[in-house]
């Protein structure tokens, strides 16, 4: 009887613990970085802490990073909003929470900046700066790149930050983006149809030029300069007329007759023809301490 009672009691305690564990996550002593998975280096954590000193000082904002092993049965967005509200993160704050084992998570922001940092922007930042490295297990790079990008967002939105308490944090410039070779490749791919049309046009022009040269070589005269607009009208496009009849034979001998003199004009009887060729500077309000409810990421 006692054993049964004890088992029931234990089961109840475990059940209650399981139900409340999901949202029982307490912030670490650093507060700004809670690395339950233990995947971040100390230097990354310190960088985030330094960044937050500037964010707090300049914008009364916080950038909170939370990495856990599992969300379990809880949706990532519910977890994030609950955490944001429980930890009383500032209304201008941003919370990143992600599961290293399940590879899901996302960003939620405070109610004060929800209107200028919508879900589409959250997803954009995560796709550009976070997910690739995170999925590959490069957690330091993922967190560092995303946090730097978010810091730059604060500066773009609210103006340049004043230096932090120790002034030691200097965010790197915005990511340079793809390399020159990649940019050239993107340009070519985006404009491939124009390039193909230009290439075909070039081939046609070269073939026409060859025909032009053959035309004049056949006439036995020096080849004038070719221009690409000859493609539409040029001497070599006009059909050659029938040969003119031969003139009368000049009289033989005799006196007084004048020999045949050819005309002063050139051979052919036709002239060559003319040719003509990337926030609104909303007023800053502090406080709030509540998630705007939006979420960008993998639920």
């Amino acid at each position: 009887m006692t054993k049964k009672l004890f088992s029931c009691l234990l089961a109840l305690v475990l059940l209650f613990s399981a139900a409340s564990t999901v949202f029982a996550l307490e912030p670490s002593s650093d507060f700004y970085v809670t690395d339950e998975s233990g995947v971040l280096s100390r230097s990354t954590i310190e960088s985030i802490i330094n960044m937050n000193s500037i964010l707090e000082n300049s914008y009364d904002a916080q950038l909170i990073i939370v990495l856990i092993d599992y969300f379990g049965d809880v949706y990532a967005d519910e977890y994030a909003v609950q955490l944001f509200n429980d930890w009383q993160i500032s209304g201008n704050g941003i919370l990143l929470v992600a599961s290293t084992q399940e590879k899901r998570g996302g960003i939620t922001v405070g109610s004060e900046i929800e209107s200028v940092f919508p879900d589409s922007t959250k997803n954009d930042y995560l796709n550009r700066y976070f997910w690739d490295d995170f999925d590959a297990g490069n957690y330091d790079e993922a967190v560092t790149n995303l946090s730097n990008a978010l810091f730059n967002w604060y500066e773009d939105e609210f103006g340049p930050a004043s230096s932090g308490i120790d002034g030691s944090y200097a965010p790197p410039p915005a990511a340079d983006g793809p390399s020159l070779g990649t940019r050239i490749m993107y340009f070519i791919l985006r404009n491939i149809y124009i390039i193909v049309i230009l290439f075909i046009f070039l081939i046609i022009v070269l073939m026409d030029r060859a025909r032009y040269r053959v035309y004049y070589r056949g006439m036995g005269i020096p080849i004038p300069r070719y221009h690409f607009w000859y493609l539409w009208h040029g001497p070599h496009h006009r059909p050659r007329g029938p040969r003119p009849p031969r003139g009368p034979r000049p009289p033989r001998g005799g006196g007084g007759g004048r020999g045949f003199r050819p005309s002063g004009r050139g051979f052919g009887g036709r002239s060559g023809g003319g040719f003509g060729g990337r926030s609104g500077r909303s007023s800053f309000r502090g406080g709030g301490g509540r998630s705007g409810g939006g979420f960008g990421g993998r639920r």
Binding site: F23, Q82, E114
Partner: peptide
């Protein structure tokens, strides 16, 4: 609708408790 969805999410997190 997006605003309503955000509000619902906030209320859902309270309702789970």
């Amino acid at each position: 609708l997006s605003d309503a969805s955000r509000a619902a999410l906030g209320l859902i997190t309270i309702g789970t408790n």
